[in-house]
């Protein structure tokens, strides 16, 4: 077993322990906060595919999040679908939305893309608010049934936490597999230099679309989870503020890293909860801290910490060591 493998299975093990221990948590307040943190983490992971790995901005991630939540909400209440089918539908629909949004917008660069995605988020929100006959308008949708799994109702917070942690783990694992493949290399290359990508035979447009689609799909799942947990959804959860929070979480944590978004979600949740005692001042101080972190740690918290911990390089270099050893051996055999 090389170091790479050990690291991989350690992460899986830690994830399993988290899931199992969540079942024994009793404090309702902590449970609820933890579920929201997991959903926030999943959203940050979704936007990280764009802003971190592919170098594209999305300021409309709440649009996907909302479409996911409303799909689950509407399908389960109006058409009485099971939660699981509805969740799958939410994933497919938001992936498609990502694809369709990406078709025109991925041709845009930097700020233009930011503004276009922001416009997408706003249009979606306006529709939630005004297409009253379908979405219930500002009142939203009530009475979404919490999901059931193997006869266990997930309306108990600790079960739901376990379940959402499991979903998060699967998503992170998938991202890990995708990023460490030709797809991830293509994304990375597009982020640094699109012309390099072109002359390496990478279909830049196609890979950008793929990133958009996957990102939308993951945000859609987060939305479905939110709907299942809250059993009530309304447009204000999926507004511009939410989009900004999502992208800030990813950037604060460390864009383009696997665990950065998780760290970002954790830090922001703890920060936000610990400022609760300040009441009205809370939001002001929270925003001020956000700006400060962006100004002083532009590369993100996770890369900063892992750089401090390990004198040189970030975690991704660990796995390179294995490749290096392999290659050294080849060098020997040839000389």
């Amino acid at each position: 077993m090389n170091r790479n493998r050990i690291l991989f299975w350690t992460c899986i093990l830690v994830g399993m322990i988290c899931i199992l221990s969540s079942l024994y948590l009793q404090n309702l307040y902590i449970l609820r906060v933890a579920v929201f943190a997991v959903i926030a983490a999943m959203l940050a992971v979704s936007v990280n595919l764009l802003v971190g790995y592919t170098g594209q901005v999305s300021l409309g991630q709440a649009g996907f999040y909302g479409i996911g939540a409303y799909t689950v909400g509407l399908l389960t209440t109006q058409w009485h679908w099971s939660f699981w089918l509805a969740l799958l539908a939410a994933f497919i629909l938001t992936s498609l939305t990502g694809l369709i949004l990406g078709l025109p917008t991925t041709q845009l660069k930097g700020h233009f893309l930011g503004i276009a995605t922001l416009g997408f988020g706003i249009i979606v929100n306006v529709i939630f608010n005004n297409w009253t006959s379908l979405t219930g308008g500002p009142n939203g949708i009530r009475g979404i049934a919490p999901p059931e799994l193997f006869g266990i109702s997930l309306q108990y917070e600790n079960y739901f936490l376990g379940f959402s942690l499991f979903c998060l783990m699967v998503v992170v694992l998938m991202v890990h597999l995708v990023v460490n493949s030709a797809i991830g290399r293509a994304w990375k290359c597009i982020r640094h230099d699109e012309i390099s990508a072109q002359v390496s035979g990478i279909n830049v447009y196609g890979y950008k679309l793929m990133a958009f689609s996957l990102s939308g799909g993951i945000a859609g799942i987060a939305g479905g989870l939110y709907a299942g947990f809250m059993t009530f959804i309304s447009p204000e959860t999926f507004d511009l503020n939410q989009s900004i929070t999502i992208i800030t979480t990813a950037i604060l944590g460390g864009p383009g890293t696997l665990f950065g978004p998780l760290v970002g979600a954790g830090v922001l949740t703890v920060l936000s909860e610990s400022l609760r005692a300040l009441n009205e001042l809370r939001l002001i101080i929270y925003r001020a801290i956000l700006v400060t972190v962006i100004v002083f740690l532009p590369e993100g918290i996770y890369p900063f910490i892992s750089k401090k911990l390990r004198k040189r390089g970030i975690a991704s270099q660990l796995k390179l060591k294995d490749r290096r050893r392999e290659l050294d051996e080849q060098d020997f055999s040839q000389s």
Binding site: L177, V178, S181, A182, C189, H192, S200, G201, I202, R323
Partner: peptide, 26 residues
């Protein structure tokens, strides 16, 4: 790509000759 290693840069050049469908990758 200046931040990447030599070998990583070359692997990008090998893009067309990899299996890169989602199912293969996952």
């Amino acid at each position: 790509l200046n931040e990447l290693t030599v070998i990583e840069n070359l692997l990008i050049g090998g893009h067309l000759y990899t299996k890169r469908g989602l199912l293969d990758v996952l």
